[in-house]
């Protein structure tokens, strides 16, 4: 990534150099042009006094002047062309730079998600990504209980009292997302200045393992300065849908099997004692 941006900036630099030279050359030509005009004027003065003898010479000079002017014009055109190209490169540089940062965010997020097998730690990492990488102020993570078919909050940040602790599968926007497995994005003001309606979240992301929904992330409010979602936010959302799901699921399984193992172990120990 860094190499790409390096070579890109080098290209930009080279173009700048070419462009500088073109400019200098144009300046020289303009100066020469000026000199020639001066000399022409002088010649005219002279020829006026000296008669028609100089007419031929004068014509030659005029021709030379015309070629120079043409050259001048084509150089100017080239100069504008280079300038345009330059602009393109600068824009592409910015694009690559943004892409670079986005990839870094995605990389860090997925790296962290899979850095632990502890359920609570996984949960904390999901919270941090939503809070610090996306910039959400009020949000919750809900997990689906397969037996009761209900989603209930396992972790949340900044949420008010009137937020529902659990939601039936299929009920309301949140329940629907869990049922269909399709993410929901609300249009309109994401800062929720008018207050929060907990039945109309900003974003609801299903946490899916293949087509199986195991939970959801619901965002109700963003930080003040965050006025809209950027492209990388959507990338993060779809990354979270898959990776947060597997991270939470596997860490839960792991802690369950750990617990079983200790139970079995203590049984065995009990047996041994007898």
């Amino acid at each position: 990534m860094a190499k790409d941006s390096d070579s890109l900036s080098k290209k930009v630099e080279n173009f700048l150099k070419v462009f500088k030279k073109g400019e200098e050359f144009t300046q020289e030509l303009l100066q020469e042009n000026e000199k020639l005009r001066y000399r022409l004027a002088q010649q005219e003065e002279v020829s006026k006094s000296s008669g028609r003898g100089e007419a031929l010479n004068e014509q030659a000079l005029e021709e030379r002047l015309k070629t120079l002017e043409d050259e001048n014009k084509s150089l100017l055109d080239r100069y504008h062309q280079v300038e345009e190209e330059n602009k393109d490169f600068a824009n592409r540089y910015i694009e690559v730079e943004t892409e670079n940062n986005n990839l870094a965010n995605l990389y860090v997020a997925s790296y962290q998600l899979h850095s632990t097998l502890d359920f609570n730690e996984s949960l904390k990492i999901v919270l941090e990504i939503v809070m610090n990488l996306i910039g959400a102020e009020e949000f919750s993570i809900m997990m689906l209980d397969e037996k009761t078919n209900e989603l209930s909050i396992v972790a949340q940040e900044g949420m008010g009292q009137d937020a529902r602790k659990s939601i039936k599968m299929g009920s309301g926007i949140i329940g629907q997302v869990a049922k269909t497995g399709d993410a929901f994005y609300r249009d309109g003001d994401p800062t929720n200045l008018k207050g929060i309606d907990y039945t109309h979240p900003l974003v609801t992301i299903p946490l899916k393992i293949k087509e199986h929904v195991i939970g959801i992330i619901v965002i109700y409010k963003l930080l003040i300065q965050k006025t809209e979602f950027s492209n990388v936010d959507y990338e993060l959302f779809s990354m979270l849908a898959g990776h947060a799901a597997t991270a939470l699921f596997s860490s839960k399984l792991y802690s369950q099997s750990e617990r079983k193992l200790t139970t079995i172990q203590s049984f065995l120990d009990l047996l041994k004692e007898k």
Binding site: A2, N101, A104, N105, Y107, V108, A109, Y111, Q112, S115, I125, E128, I129, N132, L133
Partner: peptide, 15 residues
């Protein structure tokens, strides 16, 4: 204290 933020900041500074 957050490993996520730590990695993100370090990632940026490495540049």
């Amino acid at each position: 204290d957050s490993p996520t933020m730590r990695q993100l900041i370090s990632f940026a500074l490495k540049r």
